[in-house]
Design a protein around this nucleic acid. Structure first.
Length: 258
DNA sequence: ATACGAGCCTGGATGC
DNA sequence: TGCATCCAGGCTCGTA
């Protein structure tokens, strides 16, 4: 699930729950989510440190501490929540960070497709984020145009390629393309000035709304609100939506509007 | 460079 | 009810 808006929501959770607080205890319930770091090193590095202002790039959340940086990626099923340490851990709670007597940050993830990394310094942070393109929420129009048109694949593939643009996932890409009235199979390199303008505008609008909501909202007026319907209908023109596969991912689009 | 499939992991829905 | 199969909004890797 988690795309840029969800991760931005997790960033807010982290800030509200733990910013300025000392990490008293790190408890790893499932080592399967740790990457390139042992339980021992994670605890030694973080316990006693204080969380500072968290950052986000694409779908990565950077939990800064003034020292090492905890890097979180949520895969398809991860989430971050603030709980009471007294509350029993749930089945998919993988790592718990107690930051106060009554506050505990929890990394919960059913499928464990991604997880947690620990960057000792900025070089490590840069290495982990190395292959990523500019963040979709802050990229300017020139960089957006340059990034997209440099690739010859289908526009949907390019939009969801984290190395081109960081943060857009399958749902957002479908939503943005539908709003911009572009077919997912259009070649990115062949988009004209007007297409790029629409894409950029709708990407920004869609992201802004979704970030406010903390996720891509399944509203009736959004394409996303209909992708799971048995016979999905376009909320704009009323025509039947089509389901196809682009780059191995389920794709929903309107053959009449797009 | 691009496309495609398999694989990582788990659970819910579907079909027999 | 039991069991197999497919599918899911993430990403990486190998091959063509």
């Amino acid at each position: 699930m988690p795309e840029l808006p969800d991760v931005e929501g997790f960033r807010r959770v982290l800030r509200a729950c733990a910013k300025g607080r000392t990490i008293q205890h790190v408890e790893v319930l499932d080592t399967g989510v740790l990457h390139e770091v042992s339980v021992r090193r994670l605890r030694d590095a973080l316990e006693g440190r204080r969380f500072t202002e968290p950052e986000r790039h694409g779908k990565w959340l950077l939990a800064r501490t003034g020292g090492p940086t905890l890097m979180l990626h949520f895969g398809m099923t991860g989430q971050l929540l603030c709980a009471d340490p007294q509350d029993p851990a749930e089945a998919h709670d993988r790592v718990l960070f107690t930051v106060a007597r009554d506050r505990q940050l929890r990394y919960r993830d059913q499928r464990k497709l991604r997880g947690l990394w620990l960057a000792d310094d900025e070089f490590e942070v840069a290495r982990l984020l190395g292959g990523l393109g500019p963040d979709a929420l802050t990229v300017d129009r020139d960089d957006f145009d340059a990034a997209l048109t440099a690739h010859r694949g289908s526009v949907k593939t390019v939009l969801t390629d984290q190395g081109v643009l960081a943060g857009l996932g399958n749902l957002l890409a479908d939503e943005i393309l539908w709003r911009a009235r572009l077919r997912p199979t259009s070649r990115a390199s062949e988009l004209d000035e007007a297409d790029l303008g629409h894409l950029y505008t709708h990407m920004r609008r869609t992201l802004r709304s979704a970030v406010t909501a903390g996720r891509v909202p399944p509203r009736d007026s959004w394409l996303t609100g209909h992708r799971d319907d048995p016979h999905p209908v376009c909320p704009r023109c009323g025509g039947p939506l089509r389901r196809t596969r682009t780059a191995g991912r389920g794709t929903v689009w309107c053959p009449r509007c797009q």
